[in-house]
């Protein structure tokens, strides 16, 4: 099957290793992956600021670029959620509907489409999983702690396939980290406070590495960790699943 790799803009610019890990992992699992080099951004930054109309050009560009792929896979629950949920304001042509339906987060693609049961990777560290909100509550990649349903988590399932990895249980299983896109600069005080509180939870459990399905949350948490000179590291889940070492 032909997979279109969608690498969100901030990953492309600041965290290329996450894109590389995603690509390598998918290829290892036998996928034919293509990265359309004309990509820019899914439009979320403008739309979340209320400027949906300024994002329309990005929506059309995205659809045009990816319409031929059977699946469009990205290492980001948030950007995938945006395409699936908010591309409803442009004309719903067949191409648009197809792209919206087939854009998947990496974890969904691995578990629901490839149906993988095991992975050849090792990461002998104490890991804390940050459940990024858009993936968790938007894409329903897991059961949020608010809901009275049988508990499940795609990211958790995948991490448990990694040899030597010890997944810790947090006091607050899925509280927001405070990134929130432009929220991080509109309300910097509260955004940073939320991040510090999240880090403190991981720290109290002896976590060495915080992982997540969204690098944006990790960019925010890493920014605080580095400012505070803490030894804790962040790694996108794609890096861990692909066998990247610390």
């Amino acid at each position: 099957m032909k997979v279109g790799l969608f690498i969100p803009c901030y990953i492309d610019q600041f965290y290329p290793q996450v894109g590389i890990s995603t690509l390598e992992l998918l290829e290892k699992l036998g996928c034919e992956v293509e990265y359309p080099t004309g990509q820019a951004c899914c439009g979320q930054p403008m739309a979340n600021t209320g400027c949906e109309e300024d994002a329309v050009a990005a929506y059309h560009h995205f659809v045009e670029l990816f319409q031929t792929y059977e699946y469009i896979v990205a290492p980001s629950g948030s950007c995938v959620y945006h395409v699936r949920k908010h591309y409803d304001i442009i004309g719903q042509t067949e191409e648009v509907r197809k792209v919206r339906k087939n854009t998947l987060d990496l974890s969904e693609f691995l578990l629901d489409i490839l149906k993988i049961k095991s992975l050849d990777s090792r990461f002998p560290h104490k890991v804390g999983l940050h459940q990024s909100c858009h993936g968790l509550r938007g894409l329903r990649l897991g059961t949020g702690s608010e809901r009275v349903l049988e508990s499940s988590s795609k990211l958790d399932t995948l991490l448990r396939m990694v040899d030597g990895l010890e997944l810790v249980e947090l006091t607050r299983a899925d509280e927001c980290c405070g990134f929130g896109g432009t929220f991080a600069i509109n309300e910097p005080a509260i955004s940073a406070k939320m991040g510090k509180d999240r880090i403190a939870d991981h720290e109290s459990k002896g976590v060495e590495v915080i992982t997540a399905g969204d690098m944006s949350c990790l960019m925010h948490l890493e920014g605080i960790l580095r400012r505070q000179n803490k030894g804790m590291k962040v790694k996108h889940i794609a890096e861990i699943l692909n066998g990247t070492q610390l």
Partner: peptide, 18 residues
């Protein structure tokens, strides 16, 4: 505003695309 309590990302020489 980002940098009040946080470091900016450490930019790589190459983007993923490059």
């Amino acid at each position: 505003e980002w940098g009040r309590d946080r470091e900016l990302p450490q930019p790589p020489r190459q983007s993923f695309k490059e």
